[in-house]
Design a protein around this nucleic acid. Structure first.
Lengths: 210, 210
DNA sequence: AAATAATTTAAACAACTGTTTAATTTTATC
DNA sequence: GATAAAATTAAACAGTTGTTTAAATTATTT
């Protein structure tokens, strides 16, 4: 389905509501009101509430896979540099697209819509294979250690980032940054997450540049 | 409120449904049917669906705080040993009480019930303070490094564990353990999570026993 | 300008929601 | 074994849900 500007506008509003109140607690009337359109327009444009959710996932995830392929094609970089860039980009995307990530978490926990779940699975598999290749390459070059549990490592990255999004106010408080404007805090958050996860990857991969 | 056996039985069934379908998508009729009681019994025993959720959190979290205080009082252990035990116990609890942890994640993402949210906040604060004390002690003893972002480190622990619970089938597949009986896999999962997180803590804390 | 298609609207729909009621059965107390 | 309390039931409640309808409006094409 090709998405018009009106489609996108409705999706944006729906995303906000889903992130805040969850899919089930968000009514079609809520979405219509937030988007400033008539109730029947949701069915008219998307067919149903559920198909709207599917459309949201298609829309938001299309860009994700492209990026990691691009990074992987940067021929002049060694495996560690590529992994580092992938970590940074993942954190960037998560922090910038917080609302969608929250919707993603909810959907993963409750696991209802088969279209969405399959889509998530596909993306995760692609991601794991790509980083798996990079690690293999690094092991050949003897800059990574031999035994690495990739799935566990990826879980730490995504788990740390997603859990941080959910509990960011706790983190903000722990750094006593309650009064900082949000944009500024967001930058610190991103930076700290990137540094932290890079450190973990370095340690687990056994990467130790002389 | 003192909980009778019937209370507990209803809570157990409700927990399963909340974990599987989410709080909002679970109807009072679903709970009543699963528990084998009349619809009106839910209101009779708990007052409302929302109060049932609150009762579930009270019930499940009461044991959690006790444990960490106990560990902290083991005088013969050094800070690192205590932290290690706390990691192990956290992973144990999470894997064994998966359903409740899933309900917890959902509630943290959508953030609706004030009683639940306040309760979660309180527990997390207690937890952070205790581990914070242990880290401070370790720094005094010069076995941990000076600059440690505790909130970030805790986020990695809880994020890794929770995200693993949600995506454990992916992990099981990545280890090619699809046909293993679940109890057996659960033990491996627990063990791997513990080892992994201990490694991360060691690396971030800079703990390096000669 | 007429005709056709696309968009928008208010109203209605049937099904489902959490909760309450009042009657009934079971259990405990004397 | 009578009396009171507790537990259980089926039915009804009022409000909300996602979706559809058929008419009205606007935009596009001829």
């Amino acid at each position: 389905m090709a998405l018009s500007k009106k489609h996108i506008h409705i999706l944006n509003q729906a995303e906000k509501l889903f992130a805040k109140n969850g899919y089930d607690a968000t009514t079609v009337r809520d979405i219509a009101e937030a988007a400033g359109v008539n109730l029947a327009m949701i069915s008219y444009y998307f067919g149903s509430k559920e198909k709207l959710l599917e459309a949201l996932f298609m829309e938001r995830m299309a860009s994700g896979t492209l990026l990691i392929r691009e990074i992987n094609n940067m021929a002049h970089l060694n495996p560690w540099q590529k992994i580092q860039i992938m970590i940074d980009e993942y954190v960037n995307r998560a922090v910038q697209k917080q609302d969608f990530f929250k919707v993603m978490i909810s959907e993963q926990v409750i696991n209802q819509n088969p279209v969405v779940i399959n889509y998530l699975r596909k993306i995760r598999k692609e991601y794991a294979e790509l980083i798996g290749d990079l690690i293999l390459q690094g092991q050949k070059e003897k800059i990574f250690c031999k035994k690495i549990d990739l799935a566990l490592l990826l879980t730490t990255m995504t788990g740390t980032v997603k859990h941080m999004l959910i509990n960011q106010e706790f983190y903000r408080h722990s750094l006593s940054l309650e009064n900082m404007p949000y944009e500024k805090f967001q930058k610190i958050l991103t930076k700290n997450l990137q540094t932290h996860i890079r450190k973990i990857f370095k340690s687990i991969l056994g990467y130790d540049p002389q």
